[in-house]
Simulated assay, not measured.
Amino acid sequence: MMPSDDSGSGPQGSGPHRWNDLERPPLNATGLRRALVREGALWTSLDVVTSTGSTNSDLAGRAAELGEGAVLIAEEQTKGRGRLDRTWSAPARSGLFFSVYLEPGEDVPVERWGWLPLLTGVAVATAVSRTAGVDTALKWPNDLLITVAGEERKAGGILAERVGDGVVIGIGLNVSLRADELPVPAAASLALAGAVSTDRDPLLRAVLRSVEQRYVDWRAADGDPAVSGLQEAYAAGCSTLGRMVRAELPGGHALTGEAVAVDGDGRLVLATAEGLQHPVGAGDVVHLRPST
């Protein structure tokens, strides 16, 4: 069962702790629907819940009923999930935690669906840069990096899961977390990066509009990442390229080399010291510091 909508624009009609942090007001679900859910648009429904375990799990359970374009946002996630079974936690209303459901359909070959999390990464990075005034970069495959005190740190992540005839894509973005609230030292938030605004409503609208534009263009090109411009855009914003990295592969293996390209299947291509090129389609990539 989907948690009940608890997203009015005032202090009434919600729990007694709704305004316990005035610096972190709740999202205005009515305004978001008015701006995003309209005739002919990609987004067909939008719900905001006070708290849930995982928006990805909740939306996956109702994807068939809601159909393409459903958006589920949580003010707080208690069991948020990242890639490789990692957890994602943050204080209530300190970020954007939401999932969307997309059905590329028969027009897009299934083998190209793997571009969806990369597409989402490009869209999120573009929207954050324009709306929050923060420089962004992508770490392959789908981490959002921002610079804090001269150091690249992770401020967001994306998790895509195949569900029935489509894909549920979860997005987590740290917006107003303070230094003492970060889950790990390598994390960051837009506030810590000096964002011009940490108002989540316009930021969420910008992100969803950016995802819609990228998705519509990609789907119109039958999912071809080159024709749609997605492959070029991802490469331009990917800070992994040109770096020495270590790819920790499934099964406990590791591969070290220079990240030289993202191929047509969205895989990261590593050039090793032996002069060979290896495409990496899954695993965890670590950016290695240049030797001095």
Rank of each mutant, 00 (worst) to 15 (best):
P3Y: 08
D5C: 05
D5R: 09
P11F: 12
E23C: 13
L27C: 03
E39P: 04
V48W: 11
S54I: 01
S54F: 03
N56D: 01
L59M: 02
A60Q: 14
G61P: 12
E65I: 01
L66Y: 02
E68I: 03
Q77C: 02
Q77E: 08
K79G: 04
K79S: 11
R83N: 05
D85H: 14
E103Q: 13
D107F: 01
V110H: 13
P117V: 12
G121W: 13
V124S: 03
A132Q: 06
A137N: 05
L138Q: 15
T147V: 10
T147P: 00
R153P: 05
K154T: 09
G157T: 03
I169Q: 01
G170V: 02
G170M: 01
I171C: 14
N174Y: 13
N174V: 03
R178C: 06
P183S: 15
S197W: 08
D201E: 15
P202T: 14
R209K: 14
R214V: 08
Y215I: 07
D217W: 00
A221I: 07
A226L: 14
S228K: 10
G229A: 12
A236E: 15
G237N: 12
G242S: 13
V245L: 01
V245E: 00
A247D: 10
G252W: 02
A259Q: 01
A261K: 13
V262A: 09
D265I: 00
R267P: 00
V269M: 03
A271L: 09
Q277H: 06
V280D: 01
G281P: 03
H287K: 02
L288N: 06
